[in-house]
Every structure is written in structure tokens, then in C-alpha cells.
Amino acid sequence: MTSKELYEITVLSRGGQGGILGNKLLGKIAFVDGFKDIIAIPIIGAERRGAPIRAYLRISEQKLRRIDAVKEPDYYLILDETLLSYDYILSEIKDTTVIINTENGCSYKFPPGVIAYEVPATRIAIDLDLEVAGQPIVNVAMIGAFAKATGLIKLESIKKVVVDYFGAKGELNYEASAKAFELTREVKQDE
């Protein structure tokens, strides 16, 4: 683990995928894991199902005073590969680490300096029947991928928080995150 005091994360998702909840849960997990302060900042509108949604997270070893939007995140957690088809999203990704939900290899190219991790979170959710209203829920699986890619949080902390939060469905969610932890891999970007 590095000695950085502040980590900033941007979670990109589509309305209904659980991106905002996943962002908050990731904050809880980081707090349980011993970070001193966190702030989860969802950017909320109205009637947004399917729309691109973003949420920001700061996790810190110091008391946090900021409430402004994260502009240059250390990590992007991308719950849906198709979000990269928007130029304004793809173009903001530079000098950062991306953790992306994709099954057959991400078809979008990032500029040099971007470290990319891939995880088939939708496949994991479908295989585990982890669905809400017909939509595979990938947020907790993506948290497992985050744990693997960053080393900032522990799998057992994920378990503690999701079981506490989801009750009966907690074990299944944890299983998804553990599976994602196992399947997350770094992909070399073509120079």
C-alpha cells in the first residue's frame, strides 16, 4: 500500500446499475478498513434510469473538508463499457487508473499513462442471478475488482459491510465481489 493520504475515485454508471449505492458502500468499506474520513458524493438528477450517472468518492487519512466534485481521480470505476462511447467521458480519462466492466476486452483505447483493469462484472452478476428488476447489479462485483486493482481495501471488509447492508442478499453480493477479485486483470495498453 502506498503512503498517499488522499484517494479520489470517480464511479461512472448508468441509472439503475447501482453506481451511487456502490460508491457509498465503497466509502463505508474504506472507513471500516481504517481510513480516517470519507465523503461519497453522488451527482443526482431526476428520472435518470439508463442515463450516464457519476458519483465521486474521497477516502483519506485526514479529516476531509472538501465537498466539491472530483476533477482528476486516481481511479475510475466504470460499471458499463458503453459509457466510453461518449467522447466527453473518454476524453477526460488520462493519467489515471481505470477499472472497467467488460467481458470480451475493452474496445476503447485509453491514452498512454492510463493503467487499465478489466473485470466481467455483468457476466458474474448474471451467473449468480444478482438482478434487480431484470437488471444485473454489478456494483458490489466492481468493488471486488477495486480491491484487487488497488489493494486499498480488504475482501473481508467488503463482506462485513455488504452483509450488514443487504442482509439476506449480502452473501450473494459478497460472492460476486470475491469472484470479481479473482477475475480482475490488468490489460496492457497498445502504445
Binding site: 457509498k24 466509502g27 472507513f31 474520513d37 470519507i38 465523503i39 461519497a40 453522488p42 443526482i44 465537498i67
Partner: peptide, 12 residues
């Protein structure tokens, strides 16, 4: 307190 900026953000 601030709508969304505080009402919907999460902190300890």
C-alpha cells in the same frame, strides 16, 4: 444545510 451537497453526500 446544502441540498445534495450535504443532504445526499455520505460521511462518517
Amino acid at each position: 444545510y446544502g441540498g445534495f451537497s450535504q443532504s445526499h453526500t455520505s460521511k462518517p
